[in-house]
């Protein structure tokens, strides 16, 4: 891991020193030795803050997009778009692929300091700064949990999800941490008309969480950030992983694999299966 840290610092020093980028987004030590937090290095003197190890899990692609994103900020004139280098774990690279597909920015807008784990990431990093182990156990666990839920009768499964959604406090951390939740105005914030009630009633919470899952169909790249940040431990990623599996089965499409591909739900083929229509 120290090698990865060294490599990131070396690249960051070069990129900032030669003024090739304006900011390097990576990880730094957080409030104690067990915690990492995002780092925004803007000058060569700051690069020694950058670290990489097992604590550094956040999907930093989130900072590229949205109202205040580095590449899409509407508070900065278009000609002042900063040149950004991003320390990208595999999930962040897949997110970058999806965001390019959705025309949020172009591949050349972000300098990718990639960390690979052998899984496909859909883009060539500008520099590969390290290699980590794929978290196979975690993916297996997600599949096992989905299978477990699917074994339940639909009514029990629904009751289980309703119970989970009851816990929701509507802090929207799931949305805010998600690289794909970059909408100018989220449907849950619209109030003329108000599609989804704002108060944390079970019915409103269910609408919110289900609609968010639907909006991520064919887009979510399974970084798991929504589930990680949820303060009341709703297993949100199960919804997303299940929808991703459906999309793969029905359309043969996996998100975050090909920046040139048209996203599954943004296109139509006459031979698309329609057997899900009852």
């Amino acid at each position: 891991m120290q090698e990865i840290t060294d490599r990131i610092r070396e690249e960051a020093r070069r990129l900032l020193g030669e003024e090739l980028v304006d900011v390097v987004i990576g990880y730094q030590q957080g409030w104690d030795e067990t915690i990492a937090t995002p780092c925004f290095a803007v000058q060569a003197s700051q690069v020694d803050r950058l670290i990489f190890d097992e604590r550094c899990t956040y999907n930093l692609a989130r900072y590229l997009v949205g109202r205040e994103g580095y590449l899409t900020s509407r508070f900065r004139p278009a000609d002042e778009k900063p040149r950004v280098a991003l320390v990208a774990r595999p999930a962040a690279m897949r997110a970058i692929v999806g965001l390019i597909q959705e025309h949020q920015f172009k591949r050349e807008d972000v300098y990718v300091l990639g960390i690979v784990d052998g899984t496909p990431v859909g883009i060539e990093p500008d520099v590969q700064v390290g290699q980590i182990q794929e978290d196979v156990a975690k993916q297996q666990e997600i599949r096992a949990r989905i299978e477990e839920l699917e074994a339940l009768p639909a009514s029990e499964r629904w009751a289980w999800w309703r119970q989970e959604f009851t816990k929701c406090i509507r802090c929207y951390a799931c949305r805010q941490v998600c690289p794909f939740c970059y909408c100018e105005e989220c449907i849950v914030d619209e109030n003329q008309p108000q599609w989804i009630g704002s108060s944390p009633l079970p019915r409103n919470n269910t609408s919110w969480n289900v609609i968010r899952a639907f909006h991520l169909v064919g887009r979510c790249i399974n970084c798991g950030e929504c589930e990680r940040v949820c303060p009341v431990d709703i297993p949100l990623n199960l919804l997303n992983a299940k929808m991703a599996a459906e999309v793969e089965e029905v359309f043969g499409y996996v998100a975050g694999m090909d920046a040139e591909a048209v996203p599954a739900l943004a296109t139509f083929r006459v031979d698309d299966t329609d057997d899900f229509i009852m």
Partner: peptide
Amino acid sequence: QQCIDCGICTFLCPTCHCFDIQ
């Protein structure tokens, strides 16, 4: 800079008390 604009800090805070009426 890191802040992602969620409501966790305020909702979990024992003293934050802002509200909306709907």
